Simulated assay, not measured.
Amino acid sequence: MTHGTDIPEAAKRALAEAKERREKADKAAQERPVELGGRDGPEPVRYGDWEKKGIAVDF
């Protein structure tokens, strides 16, 4: 029985690639300008929330 120490090389490469993608995404997120006057919470386009305080909004 293995105790998690015997990781195949392919899995190690996949983990390293995933870590690199996360770091790249985090860096890109930090470089984006801050939106002034935008909505709080999740992005309405992504989550289908087209109302704010009961009032439907359109862009």
Rank of each mutant, 00 (worst) to 15 (best):
K24N: 10
I7D: 00
E20P: 00
R46F: 06
G41N: 07
E20S: 11
L15I: 04
A10E: 11
F59M: 08
K52C: 10
T5A: 06
E9R: 11
E9T: 14
G54L: 06
A14R: 15
Y47W: 09
V34Q: 13
L36T: 13
D26E: 09
T2H: 11
E51R: 13
K12T: 05
K53C: 02
A29W: 06
D26K: 05
D40F: 03
R21F: 01
E31V: 01
H3V: 08
L36D: 08
G37W: 02
R39G: 05
E20H: 04
G38M: 10
G37E: 01
A10Q: 10
D58A: 11
R21G: 00
A25H: 05
L36G: 03
D49L: 12
A16Y: 02
P42C: 04
A14W: 10
A18G: 04
K27W: 09
K24A: 15
F59R: 09
A28T: 07
R22F: 08
D26W: 00
P33M: 04
R21W: 00
D6C: 12
K24E: 10
I7E: 02
P44D: 06
M1N: 04
K27H: 12
G41W: 04
G38E: 06
D6M: 14
K53A: 12
E51F: 03
L36V: 11
V57P: 00
K12H: 04
V45F: 14
V34L: 11
G41I: 08
W50T: 06
R32H: 01
A11H: 04
A10R: 05
E35G: 03
D49Y: 07
G54N: 09
E9F: 15
V34E: 14
I7Q: 02
P44M: 12
G38V: 08
D58W: 12
Y47L: 01
R39N: 12
G38Q: 07
E20Y: 05
G54T: 04
G54S: 06
R22P: 00
V57C: 10
R21S: 02
R46P: 00
K27S: 10
V34M: 09
D26T: 01
V45M: 13
R21Y: 01
K19Q: 06
A14I: 06
G54Q: 07
K19C: 00
D58C: 02
V34N: 06
R46D: 07
K24W: 04
Y47R: 01
A18M: 06
I55S: 09
E9P: 08
V45S: 11
R32Q: 15
G37P: 02
A25Q: 13
A14T: 10
G54H: 08
G4L: 14
A14P: 00
A11I: 11
G4F: 09
K24Y: 04
I55Y: 09
H3R: 11
P8Y: 05
